[in-house]
Design a protein around this nucleic acid. Sequence first.
DNA 1: TTGTAAGCGTTATCAC
DNA 2: GTGATAACGCTTACAA
Lengths: 349, 349
Amino acid sequence: MREKTVNLKRLSEHLGLSQTTVSRALNGFPEVSEKTRQKVRDAANKFNYRPSPSASSLATGKAGIIGHVVPISEHRMINPHFSDFLAGASDAYAKAGYDLLIRAAQENQEADIYRDFVSRNRVDGVVVHGPRVNETRIQFLQSIGIPFVVHGRAGGEEHSYSWLDVDNRSAIEKLTNYLIDQGHRRIALVNGLEIMNFAHRRRLGYAAALADHGIGIDPDLISSQDMNEPYGYETTIAKLDMPDPPTAFVYSSVLSAIGGMRAANVRGLLPGQDISLATFDDKLSFLQANGSGNSLPYMTSVTSSIQDAGRRVGEMLMDQISNPGAPPACELWKTDLLIGKTTGRPHAG
Amino acid sequence: MREKTVNLKRLSEHLGLSQTTVSRALNGFPEVSEKTRQKVRDAANKFNYRPSPSASSLATGKAGIIGHVVPISEHRMINPHFSDFLAGASDAYAKAGYDLLIRAAQENQEADIYRDFVSRNRVDGVVVHGPRVNETRIQFLQSIGIPFVVHGRAGGEEHSYSWLDVDNRSAIEKLTNYLIDQGHRRIALVNGLEIMNFAHRRRLGYAAALADHGIGIDPDLISSQDMNEPYGYETTIAKLDMPDPPTAFVYSSVLSAIGGMRAANVRGLLPGQDISLATFDDKLSFLQANGSGNSLPYMTSVTSSIQDAGRRVGEMLMDQISNPGAPPACELWKTDLLIGKTTGRPHAG
DNA sequence: TTGTAAGCGTTATCAC
DNA sequence: GTGATAACGCTTACAA
């Protein structure tokens, strides 16, 4: 049953045409007659002909692949945020006929990998994940001249490259303001790693909301780490055990928020009653109901689908690749504030 | 700063050697003299020469890429189990110099994609995810003759292909037995989709444990769906609201178990006291503490790292590709039973 | 509208 | 131990 590999040569021989004509017919060149094109298409279908990517890549210099570099280093994990983003992006790639390639990067190897991508012509473009406050990759990518889109921003010359970002600052500001309006004064921020640009901006939003209401910042109420469940749990427990504990918590991710819920539970506190919990919600798919509607508006949150962001970044990259001349595209997404059941007035009930 | 692309031709001209010799030197052929090899290597490093993947792929027929097909269809999501698995697998690929490629599959396109992979020589091997009870991909892959390893098993001729599986049956049997030993009689199973082989086997383990203790099966205590948080929540709520509710729950994934915890919380039940919750734990990385030790032995569970499984599957595939003649390799992994704080005797406290 | 032939950057088969 | 030379399968000037 193994199919004999039918290539352009054999196909054209069978058709009694030259390879050139067959190639042109298949690639939609205008000069080939409609009759010929049909004949060629039919034969191609019949013999299940597919051009070899290596060969066309060699001939055209296009790989048909988008690269993602994942730093395996610090946390050694591919997290749900990342995979949700990829789910969206790969969708956009697929629609444009591109494949998605992932390469794990050790410690400080990222630059090397990008260089490798370019010099070997492995990929046609890349996505930059998790820009830092001091980001070096962008300049580097510009210097080696490969199309890229950044998920997030990196400060500096923000209009010299393409990016898509959520308005992290205003998102957390909104959330914090809401809690303040509810009467809270001691509000904890369980943030992501603040060397990351997004976490830095969220911190600014938090600080702005407090400042606007004349509330001082208590550094003990702020923590900054990689966002996962145990982190959310332990941090929440620690803060609850403070002499003067916060009455409300803002989480940078639903992952740590889940940990926060667990902590509240363990301490016998009912969210929405005894304590207020609010979070930034990336709408991670495994937390969404798979059925008809979206899942419960359970936690108070600011939301923005990271999967949608991935899809859009993918589209932007596709655009950039097909229009190399076009100027950089930048998009700043707003978030929605959703009032759930995990917040209320302090010490109520 | 853009580096001029240095290829084999230019490198060999620079060295005053033939392309053949340079290629042989770089690829470790024994016949080339050590002196020449050193000279070549030095020059290659100096000029940062990297062979073009398209060109060598064209010449050798090897793509240097492993393909993963993800069905975007039913649940339209890349879930944490999948990405954790990938994290492990990509590690093994990277060590062997392979890249990881992901292609999203619509509805019933999977076979098409595999065919495409083979006929276009896009990848050198694939991993089969989530085998069903009635699995068709395996036979198909055997027929088109591409190296593959299955994560899980598919019944039938289990020694005709390579696979790595967790002993799902005995895992859930262990867990159920433990709950029975604690005195529980009404035990709910919040299972994955039972068209999936793993979920089917888990159901068997559950049934076996009950049967061994002369406990009848109540179909109302069993549910089978895609594993996520809302599913765990809603199912748990529904079962708790039964006239004769279960005193213990077994979850097929920590994701639905998290939903179960939330449900217990909402119903005012303290896990370990008022109700017992146990789960199969894949050790998803976002639920592990990032610091030193592993996270809290919090929930009672049977554990097996899905990331380790991914790594091993990757290694097995690498082996298979380098030794095409070797017989299929099969591994069945045992799970560890971990007694946590979420289980106890029924109605205790 | 179609065909010829060169080229993309490797590896593999022969010779020497 | 080293070197011509022919594949590999496609695209694309350049001709016709």
